Simulated assay, not measured.
Amino acid sequence: MGSTLFQSNGASIRLHRHDLPEGIGFGPVVAIDTETMGLLPHRDRLCLVQLSAGDGHAHCVQIIPESLGGRGADCPNLKRLLADAATIKLFHFARFDVAVLRQSLGVICAPVRCTKVAAKLVRTFTDRHGLKDLCKELLGVEISKQQQTSDWGAAELSAEQLTYAASDVLHLHALWAKLETLLIREDRLSLAQACFDFLPARGELDLLGYEDPDIFHH
């Protein structure tokens, strides 16, 4: 298992092939995102898992299938972290990520928080709930989405891809702090928590095909 270190805008981005190394700690809350070959968790393979402790640094784990010379879902350190009940996993659009991680790695991620759900609960005056918009409006941070549709299944990922991937987790802790303050102000923190608690089950429903029709529709 090899690791490669990149530097971008003052942040260190470390790429790990196959799994996290032993001994890496992320504290009580770890920001997580995924990159996949597409947007259907039951069809499109997982290629990259990005993680950050909110300290300005990111770790990216490249998941390479056995058919391409990798180890596939054999990533025990990463899976241990994802399943750790004592570590909160912080996502943006957790519904997709928890489904992908369940499908690809067989792990149920819990407990989770989701900045997209939080934003929709308190920012009802706008329909701009994407990570790019939230980072700009709440943090004054501009992030690029130029590499969003690049080929994440490539054997060698570019520095530009890794910089983009890292940007999706580097700001989540600060973003959550802003949104948590708004949830408390609007007396919706407990409602948000109930939504977060349901997200792993929502991901399971999506994998079973209950996204359309949604069982919660009339």
Rank of each mutant, 00 (worst) to 15 (best):
I32D: 07
V100H: 10
H171N: 12
P111L: 07
Q148T: 10
L105F: 11
L199A: 06
D33E: 13
Q7D: 09
R17F: 02
S167C: 12
G10Y: 08
T124N: 13
G203D: 06
D133A: 15
V100I: 13
R80N: 12
L157R: 01
G56P: 07
E137V: 04
L68W: 09
T87K: 08
P65C: 05
L134C: 09
D44H: 15
G72M: 11
D214F: 12
L46V: 12
M37R: 15
L101A: 09
H217V: 07
L170N: 04
E66S: 07
A110R: 13
S190H: 11
S150C: 14
G10F: 09
K132W: 01
L172R: 00
Q193G: 12
L46H: 08
S167R: 03
R188H: 06
L170M: 04
D151C: 11
A73T: 03
E66M: 05
A154Q: 15
V98F: 12
P28A: 06
I64Y: 02
R102N: 14
K145F: 04
L139W: 02
P213Q: 06
S52Q: 02
D44P: 10
L191G: 02
S190M: 13
H59F: 10
W152D: 09
A119V: 06
A53W: 04
A177P: 02
R128A: 14
M37A: 14
S158M: 08
K178V: 05
V49P: 01
H217S: 14
V112S: 06
V122K: 07
V98I: 10
V61T: 03
A201C: 08
T163M: 10
Q62V: 08
R188E: 11
N9H: 15
R128G: 01
A31N: 01
L139G: 02
L138T: 04
H59Q: 13
F96L: 13
V122F: 09
A159E: 13
I108L: 13
H42F: 13
S144C: 12
E142M: 04
L48Y: 10
T4K: 02
G72L: 09
A11R: 12
E35A: 03
T124R: 15
K132C: 01
L172N: 00
P28I: 03
A165V: 09
Y164T: 06
T36W: 12
G153I: 07
H171M: 03
L175S: 01
R45F: 09
D212P: 00
G130N: 12
S158R: 11
L78A: 08
L179E: 01
R123D: 08
Q147M: 13
L199E: 07
L199V: 15
T36Y: 08
A201N: 07
F96S: 05
G203W: 02
L182D: 03
L208E: 10
C195H: 15
A118Q: 00
E137D: 15
M37V: 03
T87Q: 14
Q50H: 09
S167F: 02
A11N: 14
L131C: 06
F26K: 04
H218P: 15
